[in-house]
Design a binder for these strands. Structure first.
Lengths: 130, 130
DNA sequence: TTGAACACTCACATTGATGTGAAGGTCAAG
DNA sequence: CTTGACCTTCACATCAATGTGAGTGTTCAA
């Protein structure tokens, strides 16, 4: 598929798709006329990138993570450098920290909303009874 | 405490502390000489902001979340507008999406590392037995 | 009373993720 | 053959989060 369709199916602008490519996050083959050609699998990859980016990870990191995140677990173990492992472990804990932070705050919001809605319903009831 | 100490205790630069203030995330009282004065409680707030920012939330959103996130649950229910509630609910689901995305990817990394380390240890053993 | 260490404001620079638009090539349908 | 809808590259613009530095005031201790 060409860039327009991929953009539409992922909700990521053409501009950004080219940007991701420029950053080494995705690779597109080229048709004879120079147009980029994408595979079906690119849809998922782009969504993955979008998610991670939206979660605050920079492209630099995403680029390192991507190779280890493909579904079929085509693990290219052979040439994993120790630095790569370190990077991954490091990134893993950073992800955990983010998750913890987000979870904590989401739960607080939940509590807050709970409380607010409880009060609101109480108000409604008192109004009903008056 | 003054800005330098707060910066040191939170790991957030003075420049950014002033920026957070400019964005309405924190409020500092002023000493007679014009210096900003922070309370002990500001440390936690700043760390909170740092965490959310690091998790990819923009200041605009953080500003809206903060009032509902203080520990003592000093819930100011009275003047909650319906729009505010909607905003919060919306932000809540977006947080959940982020959390889900991050969790998924962290777990994938974990799997990958597991696999890699398993192979590595296998190699070590085969080398030991040869 | 001077110097170091802090504070202030203001303003310009940078980086990463994006938008936007110009100038032009490709292709299919009328 | 032209028109419209794609695509290409290139470049400049923007926005948010930061850095950096200039120019100046305050405080404190030697």
């Amino acid at each position: 598929m060409r860039i327009g369709e991929l953009a539409e199916r992922t909700g990521v602008s053409r501009r950004l798709l080219r940007y991701y490519e420029e950053q080494g996050l995705i690779t597109a083959s080229r048709a004879p006329n120079g147009y980029r050609e994408y595979q079906e699998s690119h849809v998922d990859v782009v969504l993955q990138i979008k998610g991670l980016l939206d979660a605050g990870l920079p492209t630099r990191i995403i680029e390192q993570l991507l190779p280890c995140l493909d579904k079929p677990q085509t693990i290219y173990v052979p040439d994993v450098t120790p630095e790569m492992i370190t990077t991954l472990q490091c990134e893993q804990t950073r992800l955990s920290e983010r998750i913890e932070c987000l979870t904590r705050n989401r739960d607080r919001i939940a509590e807050y909303l709970d409380a607010v809605l409880r009060v609101k319903s109480a108000k409604t009831e008192s109004r009903a009874s008056s």
